[in-house]
Amino acid sequence: MNSVAGINIVRFILLLLVQVLICNHIDFLGYINPYIYIIFIFLFPIREERLALLVVSFMLGMLVDLFSDSGGVHAAAAVSLAYIRPVLLKSSFGMLYEHQSIKFSTTDIGSLITYISLGTVIHHSILFSLEIFNISSILLVLEKTLFSSIFTIILSVLIIILFSRNRK
């Protein structure tokens, strides 16, 4: 139990720092940034209380907002992702989730990619529609969502695979 909490605290701090110090400044092609801090929400232990996940996600989003002067957009997107995570888990892992026996390091890669892609697209569409906050620039929202999602999905899957191999 203690080591699970420890791993999550370290993951929280590391992902936050990597996000605000590196990923926020990539600006690929001028505006495409990955938002890899949501890996924390993806990998949060499934058996833990959902309320805890909501509060922790809110804090994580708020801290990212604090660093990037963006009001509350990351907090809103992160809380929404945390709230609908069970639905995503059920739709991408099916039976495994019902038995509460998902291990992210051993699941097959297909379901993992489905899970992360669905979550990322939902998170990013909320994030960018709140950030731009203007219905007439809906094309800009879709464009940013699409490109940033691709970037985030690739990076997140790579990071998850890379670090779960190491732990074995």
Partner: peptide, 17 residues
């Protein structure tokens, strides 16, 4: 709880705009 946290975040967003 989700509704509460989300509306806090939304309020901060609107205020920042």
């Amino acid at each position: 709880l989700f509704l509460l946290l989300f509306s806090i975040a939304l309020a901060l967003t609107i205020q920042s705009h």
